[in-house]
Design a binder for these strands. Structure first.
Lengths: 107, 107
DNA sequence: AATTGGTGCAACCAAACAGTTGCACAAATG
DNA sequence: CATTTGTGCAACTGTTTGGTTGCACCAATT
């Protein structure tokens, strides 16, 4: 799995997106601190945090015996780029169609 | 599963993203036409197209005995909005931190 | 030194999923 | 009418994954 794929995959889960939202508001936080905001176990949260970290969407900073997680939103640019690429291709295709219709060529 | 969730989930798969890219370039296309661009079966493609349709990212247009699929990129706006929301919260948090540092208050 | 609290690792389970094959049906074509 | 070609539906398989419990470890506190 390459980077872009990891990012999209990480965003595919609602709990993980919620984690990012929480971390955008208040970071860094440890897994145990995050448990309160969710209904699942700390281990469950840790798995999600790991997926997010693999995608580069979250950074871990060990501090004493704690592990503090904070948001790292830069990979989201890649998502924007991909979407923009799709939109560009689509717009260009529409333009081609429009030109074709406006030219008085027969079908 | 609500709409936004369906969209994110649809984008999580590499084959589905590839499908969208192909459809952005050349649509509408039938499932059988699309097979050539991939290594998987028509049935596999159909499953992916169904997921994309559920998310509103693809539209189906029956024509004779064919079923023509075309891109419908509007749900991608929702993704952009979500990313922008995250970025906004994050920026605001950074600003709060900066203000806190610049005010000459003691720690 | 003993206890407490935060952490990671491993095994396990059930559900979801990507992808397949097989078949039956409907619409074009001859 | 017979044949071909595109389609949908259903069943099956292997793998992934979200989530759990249990345990061992390590650092801080007393």
């Amino acid at each position: 799995m390459e980077r872009t794929d990891l990012v999209f995959n990480a965003l595919a889960d609602a709990t993980r997106r919620e984690l990012l939202t929480v971390l955008a508001r208040t970071s860094p936080r440890t897994a145990t601190q995050l448990v309160g905001d969710f209904t699942i176990t700390r281990q469950g949260i840790l798995k999600h945090l790991d997926v997010l970290a693999q995608a580069g969407l979250v950074e871990v900073q060990p501090k004493g015996r704690e592990r503090r997680y904070s948001l790292s939103p830069r990979p989201l640019d890649g998502v924007n780029d991909w979407i923009e690429a799709i939109n560009a291709t689509w717009r260009e295709r529409l333009t081609r169609l429009k030109d074709l219709v406006e030219s008085d060529e027969p079908l």
